[in-house]
Design a protein around this nucleic acid. Structure first.
Length: 418
RNA sequence: CGGGGAGUGGCGCAGUCUGGUAGCGCGCGCGGUUUGGGACCGUGAGGUCGCAGGUUCGAAUCCUGUCUCCCCGACCA
C-alpha cells in the first residue's frame, strides 16, 4: 500500500480524552477512531491488524474441528426468557431496543441461547455429535463503565466457540484440545511466554473454568502464577482447597496482574436442558446435549498487544499481526531513487510481502517518525545513498541502527526466496 | 451507580478567579527557500467557547439544569 493513497494520517498530538496507552497510540497512529466511550471504529491499518489476529484464531479453531458461522446481533427475548437470562437481575449488561411494532429486542451480549435453540434443527442423534460451531461477532454489553481503550468496550469483537457433546467424557476430550489450540493462538500472537492457563470459578458442572491470563500491569485481574507448571490461579478462587487440588504450595506462587484474553467454560446441560436440546443416545433414550463455551477477545488482544510491545517511539507489532512487514521509506523523488524504491516495492509485493510504501513528499524525519509510530517490523530506506551504493538501508523496528545491505540480504531477512 | 477531574477551530492547549463578542502550537491552503530523525520565512482559510435556560447594557467568563469524556471504586470477554 502506498502511503500517499492511505486516507488516514498520524498525529503529533496525543488524544487528550484517553489515558490508556493502547488507545492513545492506536488513535494517534490512525489505527482506530473513537466513536464514543468504549466504542471504536477500525481504520485501514487497524482493520488489518484485527483481521490478522482473527485469522490466527480462525486457523487454530478450524484445526480442531471448529466450523465458522455468524449469528445475529439482534435477539428476540423468548429464548432468553426460557433460559432466565432476559432479566436484568441475571444479566445486567443488556442493550435493549424495540421493533417499530413494539416487539422487545436485545443486542446479544453472548450467544449460548440462540445457538442452542438453532442447533435443535440439526442435532437429533449421538451420530450428530460432537459439533463445534464458532463465530467472530461483535458483542454488545452495556457496561456501567468502559475503560482502558480497546481492553474493555461496550461493543467488542469476540470469538465464541460452543461445543456440543454427547456426555462429559466426549466434552472433556475436546476441552483438552481447545486448551492446546489456545496456547497455539497466544504463542502465534507473541504472547505465549506471558499467558497462563488460569483456574477460575466454574459452575454447576465443573469445579473450575479456565481463563487465559496475559501478564500486564494494566490488567484488571490478580492471579497467582506457578511458573514451573505454567499455570495460574485467579485470586477469586485462591483458597487452600484449590492449592490442594492442584498439588501446589502457596510459596511456589507469584502474585501478578493480568488481562483475561480468553475463557473456557464447561456449561454442561444448563442450556440444553433449559432449551430442550436433546439427542437420541446409542443405547436408546433421549439425553440432553453436554455443552461448553470458549471465548477469545480479538479486539481486546489488539489493545493488549499494542500496549504490551509499545515503546517510547510508538507501536511495535509482532510480525504475525503487523499491518505490514516492511515500511519502505523513499527519501526524495529523484528518478533513480524512485526507480529503486518502485522496483523493490513491486518485488516484495509480488513475493507476498506486505509493504507500506512511503512515497509521500515529506522529510526524512517525518517518515522515520511515522515508521516508528506505526510499529512496522522492518524499515527500508531508499535514497541517493542507497542508489549510489546499489544497496538498501535496513533496520528492524527495535534495532538502534540501520545497516546497508544488498538486495539478497534484504530478501533473505524478509523471508523471500529468490 | 458513588467519588474526583474535564469539555474553547481537525488535534493539543491558554483565556474563566478579577464579565467588555477569542488567542497560541500542530495540522491544512498558497508563494518561496530547504531536504537523512517530525525545516524555515511570508501569507491565508477555519471557532463564537458541549447544549439549554437565567443574571447583566454586555457572558467563553457569573447562576441553574442537562449531555459527553477521562480516572478511582463497585461490576465484567
Amino acid at each position: 500500500m502506498r502511503l500517499s493513497q492511505l486516507f488516514t494520517k498520524t498525529s503529533r498530538n496525543v488524544p487528550a480524552d484517553e489515558t490508556a496507552k493502547n488507545a492513545q497510540l492506536l488513535i494517534q497512529a490512525g489505527f482506530i477512531n473513537k466513536e464514543m466511550a468504549g466504542v471504536y471504529a477500525y481504520l485501514p491499518l487497524g482493520k488489518i491488524v484485527l483481521d490478522n489476529i482473527v485469522q490466527i484464531i480462525r486457523e487454530e479453531m478450524n484445526a480442531i474441528g471448529g466450523q465458522e458461522i455468524s449469528l445475529t446481533a439482534l435477539q428476540g427475548k423468548e429464548v432468553w426468557e426460557t433460559s432466565g437470562r432476559w432479566s436484568d437481575e441475571v444479566v445486567d449488561v443488556w442493550f435493549r431496543t424495540k421493533l417499530a411494532n413494539g416487539t422487545e429486542l436485545g443486542l446479544a451480549p453472548t450467544h449460548e441461547e440462540p445457538l442452542t435453540a438453532m442447533m435443535k434443527r440439526f442435532i437429533d442423534s449421538y451420530k450428530d455429535l460432537p459439533a463445534f460451531p464458532y463465530q467472530f461477532q461483535i458483542k454488545f454489553r452495556n457496561e456501567l463503565r468502559s475503560k482502558s481503550g480497546l481492553m474493555r468496550g461496550r461493543e467488542f469483537l469476540m470469538k465464541d466457540l460452543y461445543s456440543f457433546s454427547t456426555d462429559q467424557a466426549q466434552h472433556e476430550a475436546f476441552y483438552e484440545k481447545i486448551i492446546e489450540a489456545y496456547h497455539k493462538v497466544f504463542e502465534r500472537l507473541g504472547l505465549g511466554d506471558i499467558t497462563y492457563k488460569t483456574f477460575a470459578s466454574g459452575g454447576s458442572f465443573s469445579k473450575y473454568s479456565h481463563e487465559f491470563q496475559t501478564l500486564s500491569p494494566v490488567g484488571e485481574d490478580t492471579i497467582y502464577v506457578h511458573e514451573a507448571k505454567k499455570l495460574a490461579i485467579n485470586k477469586e478462587v485462591f483458597t487452600d482447597e484449590v492449592l490442594a487440588d492442584l498439588g501446589i504450595n502457596r510459596d511456589e506462587l507469584v502474585e501478578q496482574t493480568a488481562v483475561e484474553v480468553g475463557n473456557i467454560f464447561t456449561l454442561g446441560t444448563k442450556f440444553s436442558e433449559a432449551l430442550d436440546l436433546t439427542y437420541n443416545a446409542e443405547a436408546g433414550g433421549s439425553q440432553p446435549v453436554f455443552m461448553g463455551s470458549y471465548g477469545i477477545g480479538p479486539s481486546r488482544l489488539m489493545g493488549l498487544i499494542a500496549e504490551h510491545f509499545a515503546d517510547d517511539k510508538g507501536l511495535v507489532w509482532p510480525e504475525n499481526v503487523a499491518p505490514a512487514k516492511v515500511y519502505l521509506a523513499r527519501l526524495g523523488d529523484q528518478p533513480a531513487v524512485v526507480k529503486q524504491a518502485d522496483e523493490l516495492y513491486d518485488r516484495l509485493t509480488t513475493a507476498g510481502v506486505l509493504v507500506l510504501y512511503d512515497d509521500r513528499d515529506m522529510r526524512a524525519g517525518e517518515k522515520f517518525a511515522d515508521a516508528d509510530l506505526l510499529g512496522i517490523p522492518y524499515r527500508i530506506v531508499i535514497s541517493e545513498k542507497t542508489v549510489a551504493a546499489d544497496s538498501y538501508e535496513l533496520k528492524a523496528r527495535q534495532a538502534d541502527t540501520a545497516q546497508m545491505v544488498k538486495l539478497d540480504e534484504v530478501l533473505k531477512t524478509l523471508g523471500v526466496t529468490a
